[in-house]
C-alpha cells in the first residue's frame, strides 16, 4: 500500500505518579470527533490518562477504542468510572456515557484546565469544524461561534494537502515555514477548490513548501476572520489538532498580532478533558 501521508500519530499517556485507587471520584470524558476520538480519565480533578485515536465509521466503537487506550496502562475498568460525559459529533453515541454535553462547552472548560484561568479566547481547530469561543475564569462560555459548514481551516483540509503534496502531516508546519518570502495565499479557502488551485501551482513549478505556505496562510486568514467576528481577548489559546501545526499557528499569531499560549498537554484532548471535568462536577452534584 502506498504511504498514507495524512496519518497522524495516535497516542496514549498515563501519569504513573497518580494512585487512582486512593482517589475519591474517577470520571471519564470522551470526545468522538469527526476525524479523531479522545478519551480522558480524571481522578479528583487531576489528569490520570488519555487515549487519542482516529474515529472510524462507527461512533460507539471509536468511543470504546479511545477509552480502552486510556484505560490500558492505568488499569482502570469501565466499572471504576463513576460518571462519564460524551462530547463531539458522536456524543450521543457513547455507550458508557451518562450525559452528552456540546464540544463548545467542553473545549472552553478543557482549555481553562490546560492553559489556566487566564484564557479568554479559545480557537478550536478541529477535524471538520472550527470554533471561536470566549470564556470566563471558570471556563464558562460567554460567547461562541462555530463554522461547521465549511472545512476550510480544519484538520481535514490539512490531511487532504498532506496527501496531495506527499508530505507527512507531522512535518507540514515546519516545511511551510521554509520559504524565503511568503507567497500570496491560495485564493480559495474551500478545500476542494484550494486543492485544484494547488495542483495548478505544482504544475507551474512551485516547490512543495511554497504551495504549503500559500495554503497555510489562506487557512490562517480564514480562521482569523472567524475569530474577529467575536473579537480576540487575551489570553488566547488554540486547541485541536491544527494547534500542533507551527506553520498555521505562527501565521495566525502574525495576523492577530498576539501570541497563543504554549500548550503543555496534547491539544487534541481539550474536548475530552473538558468532558471529564464536567463529569467530576456532575458526579459531585448527583451525590455519587
Amino acid at each position: 500500500m502506498a504511504e498514507e501521508f495524512w496519518r497522524w500519530t495516535e497516542s496514549r499517556w498515563t501519569d504513573p505518579a497518580i494512585d487512582w485507587k486512593a482517589g475519591k471520584i474517577v470520571t471519564g470524558g470522551v470526545d468522538v470527533g469527526s476525524v479523531s476520538s479522545q478519551a480522558v480519565i480524571m481522578v479528583d480533578g487531576q489528569l490520570l490518562a488519555y487515549g487519542n485515536t482516529r474515529t472510524g465509521s462507527d461512533s460507539p466503537n471509536s468511543a470504546m477504542n479511545a477509552m480502552n487506550m486510556a484505560m490500558e496502562d492505568a488499569k482502570v475498568t469501565y466499572d471504576d468510572l463513576q460518571y462519564t460525559v460524551g462530547t463531539g459529533y458522536g456524543r450521543v453515541n457513547v455507550p458508557f456515557g451518562q450525559r452528552a454535553i456540546t464540544e463548545i462547552a467542553c473545549h472552553a472548560r478543557g482549555a481553562n484546565f490546560m492553559y489556566g484561568p487566564s484564557v479568554r479566547t479559545v480557537l478550536d481547530m478541529g477535524g471538520q469544524d472550527c470554533k471561536a469561543i470566549h470564556c470566563d475564569a471558570q471556563g464558562k462560555v460567554t460567547n461562541f461561534l462555530m463554522n461547521d459548514k465549511c472545512a476550510a481551516g480544519t484538520g481535514r483540509g490539512m490531511e487532504v494537502f498532506a496527501d496531495l503534496l506527499n508530505v507527512s502531516i507531522n512535518d507540514m508546519g515546519e516545511l511551510s515555514l521554509q520559504v524565503a518570502e511568503e507567497p500570496p495565499p491560495v485564493s480559495s479557502t474551500c478545500v476542494v477548490f484550494a486543492k485544484s488551485e494547488a495542483s495548478g501551482l505544482l504544475r507551474a513549478g512551485w516547490p512543495k513548501e511554497k504551495v504549503l505556505a500559500a495554503y497555510s496562510s489562506a487557512m490562517a486568514h480564514r480562521v482569523v476572520s472567524l475569530l474577529e467576528r467575536i473579537g480576540v481577548e487575551k489570553e488566547f489559546a488554540i486547541t485541536g489538532g491544527i494547534a500542533k501545526n507551527i506553520g498555521v499557528v505562527s501565521r495566525i499569531e502574525k495576523e492577530l498580532g498576539i501570541k497563543a499560549l504554549k500548550p503543555t498537554i496534547d491539544t487534541q484532548i481539550a474536548g475530552a478533558l473538558g468532558a471529564a471535568l464536567f463529569a467530576q462536577a456532575l458526579a459531585k452534584k448527583s451525590g455519587k
Partner: peptide
Amino acid sequence: MLANYGYQDGSGDYFI
C-alpha cells in the same frame, strides 16, 4: 452567553 448560530462560507457570514 452570546450564542451565535449559523455559518461562514464563500458568500459571507450568516449568524443569528
